[in-house]
Each structure stands twice: as C-alpha cells, then as structure tokens.
C-alpha cells in the first residue's frame, strides 16, 4: 500500500484501509470499504463524491460517531494526539468510542461542522450558552471567561454584535450566521483538525463564498488541518490542497488538487469533471454523461464498483478483481489511482 509522499511533514491524521460497514436487518452495507488518506497541519484535504460514496461515514468514523447498526470493521485511523506537551500516535479505530481519550479528541482536537447547523444547535438554549458549554468541556475556564471567549470566537468568525448574538437562539439567525456560529463553536477548543461535512451545501452562493473565505482565513491564522467533505467540485477546486475521490465506499483516486482537476486518471474522476457544466464551457451543447445511476448499496457490483458504468471497462478484469489504490508510477508517487487501466490485478481471486 502506497501512501502520499512521505517525509515532507509528519501527517496529523493518517487513515489506512478504513472499513465501516452497516448491518441492518436487510443485509450488509459497505459504506466505507477501504479508504486511505492523510492530512497535514495547515493543509486542506477534500473528500469528494456523490451520494452513497461514504464520504460522510468516513468523517463520522474518524470521530467515532457512527450510528448503530454501523461500525468500523477494519483499518487504522492514526492520529497524533497531543498530551502533556508530547505527541503520541493513537489509533482512533482501536480506542473506545466513549473513553476519556476519544472524548478529549472529539470536539477538542478534532472538531466537526455539519451541513445543516440548525440541527446542530439545540433550539431551546441560546447559542451563547451552547458555545460556553463547549468551551468549558475542553478547558478549565470559568463561566465568565468562557463567555468572553465565546464572544471573541463569534467576532473571529465575523459575527457583528457578538455579545448580543450570544443571547439569540439558532432559529433567529440566518443560514449563513448559523454556519458561522457553528464554526465558532467548533473552534472553541482550538482544534488541530477541522472536519467540515458539506459546510456550504445548504447555503446560497454568496453566503457560500463568505463561509469558504472564512474557513481559508481561519486556517491561515490557526494552522488547522481541514478535511472538507463535499459533492461540489467547484468548492474542492477552490479550497483544497489534496483531493480524495470516492465512489461507493472506495477511494478511486487521490492526488494534489491540480493533478485531480488537470490530469485525472480514473475514468470516474474524468467523467465527473466533464459532466458538470461550468461558467466557461460552451452553453447549450450536450454534456458528456456517466451512464446509469449509482447502484443501491445492497446491489454493489462485483469487482471494481464503477465497472458497470465505466466506458473503459475491461471484461474479465474489472468485474472480477477489486483494484487497489496504487501510485501512478514509481517516481511520481503523489497521485494514486485505483484502476486496472494503470496496473495489473494483484489479488489472486478469479
């Protein structure tokens, strides 16, 4: 298994061969089926894919908040945990989801913001008291200091009249302000990794631009690693340093943002990029499409999960073997692809 160019910086978070399955009564859903990636401090990693690709479950797995009847069945989530001024590498997949370490990490060192901040805030408490609560969960601050810190955080995310806003309820804020407040709450414990799950999907474009701007600026100021989960390729191109493309629970391609957008290798990545209309592409002409639809999770195709929609399908190979994520070639190790167009099947299954 190759990983992205090692040696530069020690990655904060390394996910290796993560598998998270769900076991409802009807059968097994392989929501995440072997995801591997890593992210360094100050960097933004984009996880991109369509519905059912497992991008959100991946994020939830990292934070160990996968809902019943799901669970991590295999893989490692290596995280550089900071404790007593030292850094210890912990495998989050192995430790208890409710144990002291995980509680310290979740919301403390790794924070998360969600698509719909309305449901992330309690409707019956003012947002201020919820942010104060979050602050005090991960720091020894007293009530008054915590409240001051909360106001500071709101100012930091660009909310005017911060003191007054602390007393408002989530429903009183507009979508954009709620998302800012959500980010403020996530920042309360000065996280080292921020996972943003579709942070702008529910927002309008002008508000989206504001929030993306804010995230970028916060990253510059605080040096966080950001994992940005989205289906919007524009947002990915705008924000990310490295990109992971997922399809039906598997990583199909991984590389620098420039490589993914300007030199995509996997047929899925290529088709996805071509099929979206752009402000610069020619109008009112047929777009290239990906045939078919995303299969139902119970109906996963054998072999490569994309083979039945793939225009470059190799009979006898793609439908029999599962491709592994491998570096494109020996020297250029910063682009990984999981496709038999680029390497031979390595497994012996037939």
């Amino acid at each position: 298994m190759a990983t992205l160019a090692a040696g530069k910086r020690r990655p904060l978070l390394r996910v290796h061969n993560l598998k998270t399955y769900f076991f409802p009564d009807e059968g097994t859903v392989r929501a995440v089926d072997g995801a591997s990636f890593e992210v360094c401090a100050g960097q933004t990693l984009g996880i991109v894919g369509e519905s059912g690709c497992g991008k959100s479950v991946t994020a939830r797995s990292i934070l160990r908040i996968v809902e019943h009847p799901g669970g991590i069945v295999e893989g490692e989530i290596r995280y550089l945990h900071r404790t007593d001024g030292r850094e210890v590498e912990l495998d989050l997949a192995q430790i208890s989801a409710d144990g002291p370490e995980m509680r310290q990490i979740r919301g403390g060192e790794i924070a998360m913001i969600f698509q719909e901040p309305m449901t992330s805030f309690s409707p019956v408490h003012p947002i201020g008291s919820q942010i104060v609560e979050a602050i005090r969960l991960h720091s020894p601050l007293g009530k008054r200091e915590a409240r001051e810190r909360a106001a500071d955080l709101l100012r930091q995310v660009g909310i005017s009249r911060a003191e007054a806003r602390l007393n408002e309820y989530a429903y009183q804020l507009s979508g954009g302000l709620r998302q800012r407040a959500m980010i403020a709450m996530a920042l309360s414990a000065e996280p080292r990794v921020l996972i943003a799950d579709e942070p702008t999907t529910a927002l309008d474009v002008t508000t989206q631009a504001q929030i993306l701007d804010l995230l970028r600026q916060l990253q510059t100021d605080l040096g966080m690693a950001i994992i940005l989960i989205t289906h919007n390729l524009g947002v990915v191109a705008e924000m990310c340093d490295t990109v992971v493309v997922m399809y039906l629970g598997r990583v199909v391609e991984e590389g620098s943002v420039d490589a993914i957008f300007h030199n995509p290798k996997h047929p899925y990545t290529r088709l996805l990029l071509q099929s979206i209309p752009s402000l610069y592409s020619e109008a009112r002409v047929p777009l290239p499409t990906i045939s078919g639809a995303i299969p139902h999770p119970y109906n996963r195709p054998e072999g490569c999960p994309f083979h039945d929609r793939c225009p470059q399908f190799i009979p006898g190979t793609c439908d029999r073997h599962v491709p592994e994520l491998q570096a494109l070639d020996e020297e250029k190790s910063d682009q990984l692809v999981s496709c038999f167009l680029y390497h031979e099947p390595t497994d012996e299954r037939a």
Partner: peptide
C-alpha cells in the same frame, strides 16, 4: 464473495 453474489441475485 460467492455468497454475496448469490445474495445479489436474490436481491435483484
């Protein structure tokens, strides 16, 4: 895998 493919046929 074989079992799963049988299941898949059943599912279909």
């Amino acid at each position: 895998r074989t079992i799963e493919s049988n299941v898949a046929v059943g599912v279909a």
